[in-house]
Nucleic acid binder design. Structure first.
Length: 441
DNA sequence: AAGCAATGCAACCGCCCTGTG
DNA sequence: TCACAGGGCGGTTGCATTGCT
């Protein structure tokens, strides 16, 4: 346990990646996929450990990354998800397509925590600071990430009776197979009523909840209050790779460019149900009158949150369909699971051509400047100016203008079988699915 | 302009989980 | 069943940049 064997090897480079290294890694993964990461450095000619390559790919080189600052909607979503999930950054990142857990983690630590404190909200408990300062929350130090996550999940700390389960997030009522449950309503100091899950054992319910919240459970697992599937419409790679292995290029869903399709416009079109209003409806948030008439607010355990814009009420596409919900879930699970080969022994397998095409768009513009090879590749498709624009303009651009280059198709065969539809339509379709799914709540 | 502090972010570290032999 | 290796995650670190004095 602990450090990987590769990390003990000497002569491995550490620190910042050079453009040359980036290019090597990019070329290799584009051509062969990553396969097993430990073999990537060797095959790619890099003096790095596999973990370092993986990290570099996931956090920087991966083509479906969204660049730029976080939108207000994204920030709100992160705050809301953090209230539910705690520091489980990967799961939070799964709800923000194109964003990495590292990015979100950094944003949280550097920015969002301060913002919450400025609003008088404790970023750890998401309760009012005054309540936390005078309350008992300080007596529960967080020891590690697991405990942290679980303590975060224990949203309503006013009822932490020994032997009872952690409170379900936002008072969800869960039903556990083989573990009788009942719900207990309780009120916090602000009169907000939450529904607590009473389970036979603490550990069982905790584990149960964590599992339910992080895996692809069937709709019937939940008694209609916790839209796990919806929260997990993007994948948790770890879970996907284990509980639902995703073969390389075997996804059956349509191509979907996260970077472009989950643009700010797209986000605003389908995320609202997941933000305050969505959570309010499905997760027990209690809307309250905002101090500012231009802002919608919601209350979590007495903490008031604000969201900007009028995005909260646009959930008109509520043609519910539970089967759509399932397919939707698997769609996202599959979609972002892996860009590599499952088997590192077959590096000869060629990656789809459009991987090469699209990769150029997602590389930082500065890298083009620094890298003649990338520049040359990019120029085959786009002018530098257009590339630059794509990087800095509102990503809504992709929704309307980009029909080929931004596609990162996982399933080439699928494309051939299902000819492609306009990828924008694919995105619209899936966004519609999501909207419908949320509307179902 | 120089020095310092604050901030942001990329990368590393250490641990846990899972699959495999 | 156990040990091991690899993948993944969250926490932390360190460097580069930015802002202020």
């Amino acid at each position: 346990m602990g450090r990987h064997s590769c990390c003990y090897k000497q002569k491995l480079r550490k620190g910042l990646w050079s453009p040359e290294e980036d290019e090597k890694l990019l070329r290799h993964i584009t051509k062969y996929g990553h396969g097993c990461w430990s073999s990537v450095p060797k095959q790619a000619g890099l003096q790095r450990c596999g973990k370092s390559c993986r990290l570099r790919w996931i956090n920087y080189l991966r083509p479906d990354l969204k660049r730029g600052t976080f939108s207000q909607e994204e920030e709100n979503l992160i705050i809301e998800l953090h209230a539910v999930l705690g520091n489980r950054w990967s799961q939070i990142a799964a709800q923000l397509p194109g964003r990495t857990d590292n990015e979100i983690k950094n944003l949280w630590n550097s920015c969002l925590k301060k913002k919450l404190r400025q609003r008088g909200i404790d970023p750890v408990t998401h309760k009012p600071l005054s309540e936390v300062e005078h309350g008992e929350d300080k007596s529960q130090p967080r020891t590690n990430s697991k405990d942290m996550a679980s303590s975060e999940l224990n949203i309503n700390t006013n009822n932490p009776k020994p032997g009872t389960s952690p409170v379900t997030p936002r008072g969800y009522q869960l039903e556990m197979e083989g573990s009788p449950t009942k719900t207990v309503n309780s009120s916090d100091n602000n009169g907000n009523t939450t529904t607590n899950l009473m389970a036979s054992t603490t550990t069982a319910s905790k584990g149960f909840f964590l599992d339910k919240f992080s895996t692809n459970s069937q709709p019937s697992d939940l008694v209609g209050h916790l839209p796990v599937h919806q929260l997990n419409y993007a994948s948790n790679a770890r879970l996907s790779s284990t509980s639902n292995p995703t073969p390389w290029f075997t996804q059956t869903t349509q191509a979907f460019d996260i970077n472009s399709e989950f643009s700010s416009a797209a986000m605003s079109s389908f995320l609202p149900p997941l933000t305050a209003s969505f959570l309010s409806a499905s997760m027990g948030y209690k809307p309250s009158v905002a101090d500012s008439p231009s802002m919608a607010s919601f209350t979590v355990n007495g903490s008031r949150y604000w969201e900007t814009g009028a995005s909260a009420n646009n959930n008109s596409n509520s043609s519910s369909n539970s089967t759509e919900l399932q397919s939707n879930s698997s769609f996202y699970d599959n979609n972002s699971s892996s860009w590599g080969l499952p088997d590192c022994s077959t590096p000869e397998k060629e990656a789809p051509l459009h991987l090469m095409e699209s990769q150029a768009e997602d590389i930082k513009w500065s890298e083009y400047l620094n890298n003649p090879l990338l520049m040359a590749a990019a120029l085959q498709n786009q002018t530098p100016q257009s590339l630059y624009n794509m990087d800095i303009k509102s990503e809504t651009h992709f929704l309307t203008n980009n029909s080929s280059n931004s596609m990162w198709t996982h399933n080439q065969q699928q494309q051939q079988q299902e000819p492609l539809q306009n990828p924008n339509m694919c995105a619209a379709k899936d966004i519609h699915r999501l909207t419908a799914a949320y509307g179902h709540v």
